[in-house]
Amino acid sequence: MLKIDNLQVSYGNIKAIKGISLEVNEGEIVTLIGSNGAGKSTTLRAISGLLKPRGGSITFLGERIDGLEGHDVVKKGITHSPEGRRIFPRMTVEENLDLGAFLRNDKAAIAEDKERVLELFPRLRERISQKSGTMSGGEQQMLAVARALMGQPKLLIMDEPSMGLAPVLVDLIFETILKINKQGTTILLVEQNALAALSVANRGYVLESGVIKMSGNAKDLQSDPEVTKAYLGG
């Protein structure tokens, strides 16, 4: 579904991504783990068209998408639940959700999807007309995911969905990720919380200083001594 080949991204002269290749197949949850500054978010931003890659290619459903503008990538079916949530704080929960469906015109299907995400996150239904900036961090994260889902993505990109959340909420978020995936959305997940990410993912890639250090089945990575030592605090 998504195929990244020898991707290179630089900030000025600093090479952040030094030629990585990865693949996400339809129906999978793939996770990209690594420490701070490994280049996880940079990779995601390159996919979403927010950064222009210096080299390599990104192919989605057989089409090159590197170099497209951000809104055109959304049109192709990739939505992004960004790091730090980035919800529209002065808008209500409902307005945020409506903006998630900005590119869609099928009113009936939008209403249906809204119902579906509210089912997924009942807390959001309770707060539907509240200004989203006044909600708790966990609720804001739910909104960020729900908003990304409103774009009817074929591939949902999630950047650090568990960042700064209480442990109970972290569990809830990861349960929801599984649920979303079961409903048919492919997910590319970036996490610092490697343990939790590997427990829900099918496959994983370990990123270190802009290169892929290791990749494979999530179960195998979980028990790999090197990964355990470096990222799982073992």
Binding site: E69, H71, K75, L99, F102
Partner: peptide, 23 residues
């Protein structure tokens, strides 16, 4: 729709682009 897109840009340009608003 246009008004909503403007508000989104005013709030957070990057997030607006992620929603598919052509900046």
């Amino acid at each position: 729709r246009l008004g909503r897109a403007w508000l989104a840009i005013r709030e957070d340009e990057l997030a607006a682009s992620m929603m598919g608003v052509p900046l």
